[in-house]
Design a protein around this nucleic acid. Structure first.
Lengths: 184, 184
DNA sequence: GCTCCCATGTAATCTGTTACATGATTCC
DNA sequence: GGAATCATGTAACAGATTACATGGGAGC
């Protein structure tokens, strides 16, 4: 079976939900996958075109009164097969997440103590904000989509985000303490 | 002050250590920054050329008997200034790490239970391997570079990696349990 | 009149990986 | 003789972001 890139599979996956157009795919990803997958229109539209060329989906144009035309994409049996085949494959390797904070701290010798503390405090705040966002998303999923079969899996991915974020916040707290109490 | 990309700053930072050539920069990054920053020769050499063009470093070619010529790069005062200025700047936003496992689990409805379990077990194993690698690096830093001023900061970044990895492993354990005990 | 939301798309640019090309030395 | 290490570099490609272009409708 032919191999596609991750973006293609991500869109194939989203097309299994109620999101059928480029615009709503973007919205859905921004809302629910945003913590581990981002995508821009510059990728979405060309990829949708490609998916149709490959026979993985079919387009239907629907006209709505008072709204622009919408291109709606529906997975073909081949599209569903392709998605399922990819889902079963184990991942090759865990990616290295590029972390600017760690890069800066790595060269901490060339920075003042104050600067490092500010940097970490700022980062910690951003992580806490992110954690709050996760809680909000969790509320939405639990309350509005209680019976949705997908909800269970969406909550699993959220749980991952929450756990990792908490670990990072704890690290900030610990490292700040070390910096403030440390000799020098 | 002119803005450069992260790769440029990363290399500028590495040039503060004993690594002065493209080859040894690659080695150093693979050994010590690998868990949060990767880089390939295809980036290193062009970036080094660029850094010289910008007046941030100067080259010196050293001939060694029995070894190929080496281009050694030394930061100029402007280079050090540029690095320091960047280090002080807070990060704009926390990046979204793309996570293939989460993407696959997000579409868990289209996968068999067995497949999901295998996927998570495989991921967990990879995380455990990574954790072991972190422990090895930690040993190297603590024993061989005890008095190195940089060591302290290197250990901070490692600690981050360890904490986040443990959180991810715990999540795997929990999610596997949920999948195995869950109804259906 | 202005802004926001809906909706689709392209082009330029940036960032990064992989494969290729070269060539000397050392160790088995 | 062959593999590994040292060492530098380029070209092709892949992946992704940003800015731009277009245009209607709703609400203030």
């Amino acid at each position: 079976m032919k191999k596609y890139n991750h973006t293609t599979y991500a869109i194939l996956g989203i097309l299994t939900t109620d999101c059928k157009s480029g615009y709503s795919i973007k919205q859905q990803i921004d809302q629910s996958l945003n913590h581990f997958w981002k995508i821009s229109y510059g990728q979405i539209y060309p990829t949708l075109k490609f998916i149709v060329e490959e026979g993985l989906a079919e387009v239907q144009t629907s006209s709505n009164i008072g709204k622009p035309d919408r291109h709606e994409y529906f997975l073909t049996p081949k599209g569903i097969e392709t998605l399922k085949a990819w889902l079963e494959q184990p991942i090759e390797q865990i990616p290295t997440e590029r972390n600017e904070i760690l890069l800066k701290l790595f060269f901490g010798r060339y920075q003042s103590k104050e600067s490092k503390v500010l940097l970490l405090e700022d980062y910690k705040r951003k992580l806490q904000d992110r954690f709050q966002t996760y809680l909000s998303i969790e509320q939405v999923i639990t309350h509005y989509q209680q019976n949705h079969e997908d909800a269970r899996y969406w909550l699993f991915t959220l749980d991952y985000g929450k756990r990792v974020t908490v670990a990072a916040i704890d690290w900030c707290t610990f490292t700040l303490e070390q910096l403030l109490n440390g000799e020098e």
